[in-house]
Write a protein that binds this DNA or RNA. Sequence first.
DNA 1: TAGTTAACTTTGGACTAACCAATATGAGGG
DNA 2: CCCTCATATTGGTTAGTCCAAAGTTAACTA
Lengths: 245, 245
Amino acid sequence: MNFVDKDLLTPAKQVKRHQLISQEIKKTIIDGTMQPGDRLPPERELSATFGASRIVIREALKGLEASGLVVIKPGSGVFVTHGPSKTMSDSLYSILRMQNTSISEVTEARLIIEPNIARIAAARATEADFQRLEANIREARRVSSEKIPATAQNIGFHSILAEMTHNTVIILTMKSLFEVLDAMFMDFSENSARRLRISRDSLNQHVKIMKALRGKDPEKVYRLMFDHIVEIQGGLTETVSPHLT
Amino acid sequence: MNFVDKDLLTPAKQVKRHQLISQEIKKTIIDGTMQPGDRLPPERELSATFGASRIVIREALKGLEASGLVVIKPGSGVFVTHGPSKTMSDSLYSILRMQNTSISEVTEARLIIEPNIARIAAARATEADFQRLEANIREARRVSSEKIPATAQNIGFHSILAEMTHNTVIILTMKSLFEVLDAMFMDFSENSARRLRISRDSLNQHVKIMKALRGKDPEKVYRLMFDHIVEIQGGLTETVSPHLT
DNA sequence: TAGTTAACTTTGGACTAACCAATATGAGGG
DNA sequence: CCCTCATATTGGTTAGTCCAAAGTTAACTA
């Protein structure tokens, strides 16, 4: 009987070649052998060193690009990414869209997280942080004065606050959420005039939060951020249907 | 002077064939034409209908697989995923590892988010939720009595709490965090006996939280969860160095 | 000499045709 | 009716070739 061969030898074969190579390359990136900005060897060379066909190499590289670890530039080469990419928010966005998740759910998630972020930011703020925030507010004012919704600056303000926690997990999570939110708003291509009004309201509230941060008053900052997001949620329900598509 | 041609015409060429096809397929999944569990047409067929080579099709499918929208089964076919996959946590994990992020940073993130989750869960809990939680605690007791750390059940408890918010964003985010945490602990292959002790301490605290949930006391639940995670963080610093690698 | 253009090389992107390995299917025999 | 084995289907892989864009070098002009 030779069923042993069939039962014991075949099931081990589950991993795919390009995944192994992908892991191998990933190691050299994670352990620092490859620094951000470095160029990987060309596909044909990797093909030779790994003893695999070029297609397998390409799929491995595609996988790394999908993971946000490298960026592929046609005609130039494959480069190790400098920082986190949009990968996380991309998959989050796909999943949320697939489940018909509403924008208000994202806002509710912000309501759970952001006031606490603001509180921590108040405790850990440095002078450099304040200057970044003030630069952001100045920029938002400038854009707003041209009757353009300061969407990027709006996101920027909340991103800076997240960065003030100096917690990598929080920073990545929040930036993903903001990207998803931005993409969701794009889907609506919402009334521009109304967005402008909302944008200006937000700016005023950002100024208040900024002052409370300067005053090193964590509880007041917490409260202001909470109210700010409640207001955002209120602005949503009057302009936008609660569910996508 | 022909620099206009060079500056205005070339930058438009950035999109790649397989990305377009990937989006096309993604549409049919998101809008519900393709239901979870359905099998996509075979590569060769897609190749014909899209007028592209099999390689482009394969790369498009790889991209969808990386996004967690489909799963590719060799010899069988390509199937639409039922739910969210590990994609998000995978890329999060890679990025955190690359930046030498510590476990305690993940725990701090939990400290920011989870007490609020617990509070909301207390407000929204149904009888079915309680039964899930109790089943989880029973299972944790059973595993613990065999001197095995109830890691999976531990994660399960916190995941159920996140699900009790009925907020998709929160659920996905927390599950990603737990997966990352699990992967990070794997890296340490920490002392098993100590993990068992920690596991049992957690179980006791879970029971307390469960009782407070039954009592519909959001503020008490908030406090208990806060203390629980503080304790987890304390348990970390005494057993594990603050940074990876 | 300096700057520009042109040819050449490198590199990723795409294609074809064929074969391998695992799965699924169905016909045949117990 | 169930099991087995041949066959078809399907994804995985290879090799070789060509294309387009980016980078490099060299020649040529002002």
